[in-house]
Design a protein around this nucleic acid. Structure first.
Lengths: 105, 105
DNA sequence: CTGATCTACAACCATTTGGTTGTAGAATAC
DNA sequence: GTATTCTACAACCAAATGGTTGTAGATCAG
């Protein structure tokens, strides 16, 4: 899990429109224009958001006819979760260490 | 959990220096200058990174003499984790739904 | 008191980001 | 065939980001 990969991941999640896209395409399948219809911004803007999510492995595109179907990609989410789990583990170790010190003292 | 809060959270995590600071201050306690000594950038730059983490509730500062001690703040991490867990749940529901459809068909 | 250290904050700069419009290429509809 | 739809991508713009230097206020050491 490279630093650049994590940068892209968290950067991608740091925008409400992109988080909404992630939610939606996890439940159902949308074309890029189908997504664009949902937001008060241009098609090109949504297209860029999808591209950001794609680079972060949070979403994948698949051509179907003239449409580009966007579906959720679990890979990115798992990587982000793994990092937060790691932080959580470090936190718990610290809590245990403190408990030990208190027990000894 | 407001959208702006999540923006600040993921934005804060989208930088390798800031992620490193989060790791370090979770394990031990550092002053701002103590942290600054670790990175190849100015004191002011590190100070800004700490400020970003503070606004995201990933870190808290506490004055001790003339130093400002930085410690990890679990609150922010938990909120980020909660969102990813939610996404995970949506994903699992979808997987089950697909399994059901396959079982029926 | 004087000097050193730690912090806060402003001003500035280059790059990235999130949006726009416009143009052009594929695939579908008629 | 022509017209429409969906997409890709470039060029542009304002605002945010990540860095710098410089100045100034607190606190500690001698």
């Amino acid at each position: 899990m490279s630093e650049a990969e994590l940068d892209r991941l968290f950067q991608a999640l740091a925008d409400p429109t992109r988080r909404d896209i992630v939610r939606r395409v996890t439940v159902g399948e949308y074309s890029v224009s189908g997504l664009a219809a949902l937001y008060a911004m241009s098609f090109a803007a949504v297209q860029k958001h999808v591209a950001v999510l794609e680079r972060a492995s949070l979403v994948a595109k698949q051509k179907r006819g003239r449409e580009q179907m966007v579906r959720g990609n679990h890979e990115g989410l798992q990587k982000a979760r793994r990092l937060l789990d790691e932080y959580e583990a470090i936190w718990r170790q610290r809590a245990e260490r403190i408990a030990d010190i208190l027990a000894e003292g």
